[in-house]
Simulated scan of single mutants.
Amino acid sequence: MENGILTEAQQKDAELITLLLDKIVKKKGFENIYANAEGYETPAKIRRSKDSEEYFIPDCTGEVNGRKSYFELGMKSDNERELVTKWRLLASLANYKHGKLYLAVPRGHMAFTNRILADYPIQAEVVKL
């Protein structure tokens, strides 16, 4: 698993990403799957800005009917500002590529995820893990 902004801070569990892949990504028929997990190619790094060396790495990406979608684990984070920045960026990219941003939320993180989505203009489909 590669570390970008937030990847290390959130302590994303490889088992949760595998669960995300099995329960959502593969079930919905996505192809060309890239995931930040063992056994998969890592998704493309998304630079924070032109001048920045910092980058975000989506948890997973996939395509269906030529539409690229992004998948993220919706988990609590102390660094809320960075999380909002990442989700807004991924939602914008997904919209640009006629796809969606899916937030897969493990047990215990739903209230946090819903609060972020209510407070900020982020277009995302929330899916329980």
Score class of each variant (00 low, 15 high):
Met1Gln: 04
Glu2Ser: 01
Gly4Ile: 04
Gly4Met: 00
Gly4His: 01
Gly4Lys: 00
Gly4Leu: 00
Ile5Cys: 04
Leu6Asp: 02
Glu8Gln: 06
Gln10Leu: 09
Gln11Ser: 14
Gln11Asn: 15
Ala14Glu: 11
Ala14Lys: 08
Glu15Val: 15
Thr18Arg: 10
Thr18Ala: 14
Thr18Gly: 12
Thr18Val: 13
Leu20Phe: 13
Val25Pro: 09
Lys26Ile: 12
Lys27Ser: 13
Gly29Ser: 08
Phe30Ser: 05
Ile33Ala: 06
Ile33Phe: 06
Ile33Ser: 05
Tyr34Leu: 10
Ala35Asp: 05
Ala35Cys: 09
Asn36Glu: 04
Gly39Ile: 09
Tyr40Lys: 02
Pro43Gln: 01
Lys45Thr: 10
Ile46Gln: 01
Ile46His: 00
Ile46Pro: 00
Arg47Met: 08
Arg48Pro: 02
Ser49Ala: 08
Ser52Glu: 06
Ser52Cys: 05
Ser52Ala: 09
Glu53Gly: 07
Glu54Arg: 07
Glu54Tyr: 09
Asp59Tyr: 05
Cys60Ser: 09
Cys60Asp: 00
Thr61Gln: 02
Gly62Glu: 03
Lys68Met: 04
Lys68Thr: 11
Tyr70Gly: 00
Phe71Lys: 00
Phe71Tyr: 04
Leu73Asn: 02
Leu73Val: 13
Met75Ala: 09
Met75Leu: 13
Met75Asp: 04
Lys76Leu: 12
Ser77His: 05
Asn79Asp: 15
Arg81Glu: 14
Val84Tyr: 06
Trp87Arg: 01
Trp87Gln: 01
Leu89Thr: 13
Leu90Asn: 00
Ala91Cys: 03
Ser92Phe: 03
Ser92Met: 05
Leu93Ala: 02
Ala94Gly: 03
Ala94His: 02
Asn95Thr: 14
Lys97Arg: 03
His98Pro: 02
Gly99Asn: 01
Ala104Val: 15
Ala104Thr: 10
Val105Asn: 05
Pro106Tyr: 11
Gly108Tyr: 07
His109Cys: 14
His109Ala: 15
Ala111Ile: 13
Asn114Ile: 11
Leu117Val: 11
Pro121Lys: 07
Pro121Arg: 05
Pro121Asn: 12
Gln123Glu: 15
Gln123Trp: 07
Gln123Pro: 14
Gln123Cys: 10
Ala124Asn: 07
Glu125Asp: 13
Val126Phe: 13
Lys128Asn: 13
Leu129Pro: 15
